[in-house]
Design a protein around this nucleic acid. Sequence first.
DNA 1: GAGTTTGAAACT
DNA 2: CAGTTTCAAACTC
Length: 753
Amino acid sequence: MDPPESPPAPAGRPPSAAVSLYEDSPVFDFINSLSPIATPKLLGSAQNVQLFKSSDLVPASSIFTSPQVNPQKEYKPGTRDGYVQLSQGLSPNCQTNQIGISSCYGSPTIASEKCSPSEYATILSQPIPLGSEILGDAKKQDTDGKVDHSPDMGQIKLSSTCYDQNGVDQLDSSTSGRNVQENELTKQYNDDQAACSLSHLISRSGTGDGVMSKLDLSLEAQQLSWKLRSDVIFSKSIMPMAQGNLEDSRRKLLDGSTGCYIQSAADDTHVYYAGAAEGAATNHDPQMLPGVIQSQLVSNEYFFDAFKVPSDGMALSEHHCGGMNRRSLFNEKVQTSDLSGQSVSNLHHTNICGDNYLKPSRSPVYALPGIGLHLNSVVSNASNNMPFTSNPPLPPEHNSPPTIVSCSETGLYSSEVNTLIHDDHSSQKTMPSADESCQESYKKKRRKLQNGDGGSCKRCSCKKSKCLKLYCTCFAAKVYCSGLCSCQGCLNNHTHEETVSCIRKRTESLNPLAFAPTVTRACDSGSDFGDDSNNTPASARHKRGCNCRKSSCLKKYCECFQSGVGCSMSCRCASCKNSFGQRVLLLTTEKMEKEAKSKGTRSKEEKLAFDKQVVISQSGDPPSTEDLFATPSLEPCRSSNLLPSTCSEPPVSTAGCSSQLRNSQSPMKADVLLSPSETCAMEPILVDGLSNIQEVSSSCTTRVKVVSPNKKRVSPLQTGPGLSPIGRSGRKLVLKSIPSFPSLTGDADSEPH
DNA sequence: GAGTTTGAAACT
DNA sequence: CAGTTTCAAACTC
């Protein structure tokens, strides 16, 4: 594929960076499909467009998102979940820095053997020269192949001006003064891998001298892992909004503003992605997107990520409404990110105290990456193979050209927007009028209509909590209640901002993860369930797990079910029948013994497992009815997703078996068991949830709880002999034991035994 | 729409 | 920290 010709940059625009475009990247096809001139526009006024194979690329995410780089994993262009990642590619020989638009196909990968992750990281942590010198500019490299990062050279600027739907600047981050929030966001994006949408593109400084403003190195580096994604693009319902006053946007862009604007010369359709961590509006036309990307619309990866679109919320589909964008994910990122070396506590503090998302004076980024409780219902849809656009049609009022109000009403909140609205609604709620009942009824009806399946756009109906407790879904999502809520005595509005902030702080101080997303994708926790082809909603897991007793995890009472995810080891549910994947189903020794007695026999494997457990118990953990071992019916090779064993023995080789899971057509059914057949009896194994597994005891999960979702054993012995308090106490401790950050492949060794 | 069920959150 | 109570959403009729 030939590189597209670069048209001359518009007059007055500074010379821009050269850009490399990976020719086998979907985004390249995408761009090319738009227009012959789209690529250069996408890349700003890049005058040097270099093509190279994506196989030459090392996704920045592999460096910055996680230490869990799996060098064995190959970079596979063209896989179904090949979302596109904007990254700073590095040539395999590490001799040049390049800005590349590459495809990121799932888990972080290292495609090159010539450059270690640390080397990449080192390089990427440096200022990256831009300008015409950037590509293949050997003169900027010393003899060692290292890049000369001249301080006065242009640097990549990845955040950009944020436009509203009218193309008006909402925020320009091109200048200094990036605050902590920005870093937080960057962390989030980077950490969550899917944080940034296609809207995050290379943007360039509009400064006349052509020198890019410098970014914090870590920020810059992390931003390099932004993805180009097509998520919201395809949500039809946003199109009218998104296309509002495009001329302004276009003009602004062509005037040299940051951001990216893709224009099709053929029919004047356009795709505009103003990229910024601070949020972005999107103007886009789904029809302009090539099949390779469109086809991913319904992929779960996209589906999930679609909810993570950083945005001011104004350009998002109402299908996104609800919690997807409502729950602040700072906390999670605080847990997971350690990329820039910034103090976690600082971040957290900022999160708690700053309440940035509430204050309109702050950066208007409220839709944050991650999956919160509220997006669960939408996730459920995803699980049901219901793409956004397949949602039931909304009443006409929702199909009308969106306004700020309607946007907020659909549940997509920019806090700013939200705030504006809540001033109105708060008074309504706090000072009920005579029409309150009618109003409530109307709200309910409207909400019902809006919800479609009844769950997409949740609003609270609190009566006693004043919407200041986690009972309140709005409060839990860190958003103000809106006019759609039918709550009574609501204080969760902008009018009571200080109160809300205070309560939030208190709540968070009591439980730092109170506002954390409740669902984490598998890739967030270390590709638990194979590659990204399994990144379905069901391969996500509810972090805290459910505690269902009667619903069998088959109703929305169950948070896992509601989230559309399978139950996990974190769950303490009984009689789990979660259709998205059953919980750990285990046999306790006690039960097994009982069964064995009743049978009068015990299988060889059972005996072996039992013996092993006894050994383990004797060596560390006292015997307990909660000690576990598993059904003997498991396929040994399913241990491909084993937790790192706490045994000294190395994990069973999984090389030959991992494909089974990866290729599983039923990733939702992934589950975890303890296998007696493994070298270590405590190694959980992923099994197909359809397996005929008998749950013998719900109490047996205690031991399991000391295992993090990313298959990490979490120091069960740290608390001394006996049962881990983690197991008993449930949520909080379990959460603390769950590193959202993906685990290292070999981190079992780092775990205390 | 009222009443019931359910499980998370809050409380003791 | 285990047990209980409160709460609001989900569910049923």
